[in-house]
Write a protein that binds this DNA or RNA. Structure first.
Lengths: 146, 146
DNA sequence: ATCATATAGTTTAATATTAAACTATATGAT
DNA sequence: ATCATATAGTTTAATATTAAACTATATGAT
């Protein structure tokens, strides 16, 4: 009886801890983004451009896993602040290519370094071996398809 | 040199996988909430009331880790749909006690069962031992204070 | 009673987030 | 050229989310 109940309890327990960990870490890391007046999604867009170079909105959305409507809004606001600019793609006029401005490039370069350091600090709570282990376990969960 | 770089790479890698796992699992689990026309936060409120009984808004907010302003909105909408009702606390008029209605209690009872089953299915990607392990690792990350 | 301080919950302003409907653009078949 | 289909990005509607300012209530000191 108790054995029959336990798998559910274990799963719920693990799930709750996973959710709490993700939110907790995100909360602390995102403070460095907020210090630069960037939201999590704004940072995500800038980071994608920083690492991958100019991208169309569809690809940005795919990279940071957000809907088309949301991408439009986030990029609108980034454009409003002068961090990115849109250029109509000449080969296919349905596309915009989003570029970092000089201002945006300098900002993300600096903020990314802060965020990176914060992530390293967060993960330092675990040994290197445990970090690898956590990564592997999460990889299994994150890769599920339907 | 490569050894000096690796700790950062590892931490970023683990962080990314943790975030992806959390979002991925949440995305699939929340579909059962959405099937009942409940948002994640609405479900969270109803679940808290379901398990803990009537609570004041402050305590609900603490349980699901949301701001006071947000709690007001989420509960407003739940009240609008007839799932909860607020009652002014007679001992201290600053407080509302939030109660599940009959409709709300029946709904959360059903939806919670679906969500629970979904979580078990998600976690079943890992062995029982790995579920325990993941839980322990996440617990360490989630417990950090500043 | 008055004042200082604290707290529950609301309001405000800015931004985020989704699904669905929509507009503009592209491609292929006829 | 016309029509069918697909796709990038926008708009719409509903809801979420936060911090900060605010209102109402409570408590303790004077």
């Amino acid at each position: 009886m108790n054995t029959a109940v336990r798998p559910t309890f274990r799963a719920l327990n693990t799930y709750t801890k996973l959710m709490r960990a993700a939110e907790s870490v995100t909360g602390r890391v995102s403070r460095f983004m907020a210090a630069a007046n960037l939201t999590i999604s704004q940072f995500g867009v800038l980071e994608a451009l920083h690492h991958k170079g100019p991208l169309c909105q569809r690809d940005i959305g795919a990279k940071i896993l957000k809907s088309t409507g949301n991408i439009t809004l986030v990029i609108d606001n980034l454009e409003k602040h002068g961090f990115v600019r849109r250029e109509r793609n000449t080969d296919d006029r349905r596309y915009f290519t989003v570029h970092l401005t000089q201002t945006g490039a300098e900002l993300i370069s600096r903020v990314f370094a802060d965020v990176e350091a914060a992530i390293v600090a967060e993960m330092s709570l675990l040994s290197e071996k445990d970090q690898e282990l956590l990564g592997e376990l999460c990889k299994k969960l994150g890769a599920r398809r339907e």
